[in-house]
Design a protein around this nucleic acid. Sequence first.
DNA 1: ATGAAAGCGCTAACAT
DNA 2: ATGTTAGCGCTTTCAT
Lengths: 345, 345
Amino acid sequence: MSKRRISIEDIAKRAGVSHSTVSRALRDNSLISPKVREEIKQLAQEMNYVPNAIAQSLLSSRTNTIGVVVTSIADPFYAEVVEGIEQVARSAGLSVVLSASHRDVEQEIAAIDRFHRRRVDGILLTDSRISKQHTQQLAQIAVPTVLINNQTKDQSEMFYSVEIDDHLGARLAVEHLVSLGHNSIGYLGVGDRSRSNQHRLEGYQMALTEANLPQISDWVAISDEDYARTNDVVIGQKMLPKLFTTGVTGIFCYNDMVAVGALLACRELSISVPQDLSLVGFDGIAVSGYVTPPLTTICQPMLKIGSDAMQMLLDLLEEKSVENRVLSPFLLKRGTSGALRNDHT
Amino acid sequence: MSKRRISIEDIAKRAGVSHSTVSRALRDNSLISPKVREEIKQLAQEMNYVPNAIAQSLLSSRTNTIGVVVTSIADPFYAEVVEGIEQVARSAGLSVVLSASHRDVEQEIAAIDRFHRRRVDGILLTDSRISKQHTQQLAQIAVPTVLINNQTKDQSEMFYSVEIDDHLGARLAVEHLVSLGHNSIGYLGVGDRSRSNQHRLEGYQMALTEANLPQISDWVAISDEDYARTNDVVIGQKMLPKLFTTGVTGIFCYNDMVAVGALLACRELSISVPQDLSLVGFDGIAVSGYVTPPLTTICQPMLKIGSDAMQMLLDLLEEKSVENRVLSPFLLKRGTSGALRNDHT
DNA sequence: ATGAAAGCGCTAACAT
DNA sequence: ATGTTAGCGCTTTCAT
């Protein structure tokens, strides 16, 4: 492994010209005579010259790189979002540096800090937990930043954002259950996602109110901090039994993984879905279509969330003005929701 | 968004010292008096100085960055592998640049080329399809490269590699079915994964031979190119009906997604699994545990594949000698495999 | 203990 | 049309 790579200088020597001539020839500068231009290009090819993007960056103060923070790379939801990000980024000639935060503010800050040192051109933060105090610290860095499904309540006025309409999604879920005749509808949520969980809970409550349905506190089950580190399927599995005993006939779950867990618990307990209990998830990740029965769920346009956010970042880089986006989820009716049985007590 | 960031020079001016003093102070050079060292550090803090890794890289010819190519970011298998990669990379202070190849050689080459321009310190290629001719082109670049589950048959002598023992995995799958009493065992494979599909098929055949079981060509179904772009679940779904009519009682599927597709097809056709048909998958991705019944599968240690490969890369960067690794998969017995029914024709 | 100067590989303004 | 020079931000000799 030779340490030094071929540089523009090396080519210049071999060609008997100055390094700037080489630079110009390689960049198709019109001032260079077509003849030498071709010669130099040919030579560069032969010498296996690969331009040094680091040196170019130092000069241009553009790295053509963006940083992306996800909670976990193996998270099927954000994997899909990142897929959307990467597609747009790549076609714009930008590389994606990926880092995982594991829903930990410290790790998130650390990742952002590494991005800054690397002088990324822009940053995309998913499920961000940076609070106001950190914001100040990050504010002066002055790198275009777009938040995707931001989880902090207070500020978004500093950064741009792309979000899903959690209120709407929750209402769609509950309204769907209501339309099937359910009137004892529960919510199975998670404790560690502050904002989205909060919004989905609010949407759930609003929908119940509008439908003139009762709200029983026992019908709302939010996993406590003990489960915060376990995965969502386990949360669903553990929480379902108790929630079911409250007599609910339909449950809106925080997300698909929780719903899958709930579904597994139902099988364990011989609760028939949707005959005994209807389940609605949220996200629309692939796995939701593979379980039995396939999950009725509120779909987020995952690829679009990613590509929209990335497009916003591109616009920001070109100093265009952009507007925050709130995308709408939609109901995908599948097998886990059904009409309320008449004989249900 | 101010264009110019705070530089070491700016701090130097404010501190009334030279920029090299600042550099030394910041790097804890022992020659600097403790007093000014602290003063300068303090000042840097106040001025929100963020060191420019680009400039450092230009000098050190080390970017502390590695490039990773995956087929698709949203692929649950490689997502898990990348998770393992990123964990090790991060704790070693390296950032991960991620790119998707979509199983296309051109895109793979393009990604590698971008990595080279960016002067990544090392490269990790998953499911690589680069053939011998490309290898030459890539050889002179001289960046430590580790292949993960490489798909090209010919060469690996140029690069290091971490692989799963596909032969072993296939044998484990078939032997499991044999041990359950099956003697008409089929293979459901995919057409576009040259090497791993080939190896799993070979392992299947070897295991059958060793068990003195018949090999009927109709029992081997490999999806043709038409399905190459569709996802694996669809492949399983489309291929199963015909394969089932050949009278097999057990099927070893190329991977979990194919097996999930096969399982969905079975439900469609009212084929009971495992009563009428046993199914074995490969990979051990999360979804395999969520379907009904949960999939019996051959597990690959995905996180370990990633972290081992990354560790190899780290060793390579430190000029240590490394050896290729072949990891062993293992059987996870779950619900889709069962004893052969006596009344089966 | 600190400053001055060179140089990493490149681009661009300024000669010629 | 091409060469010379400066400089991006940093580290590292080499002086002092």
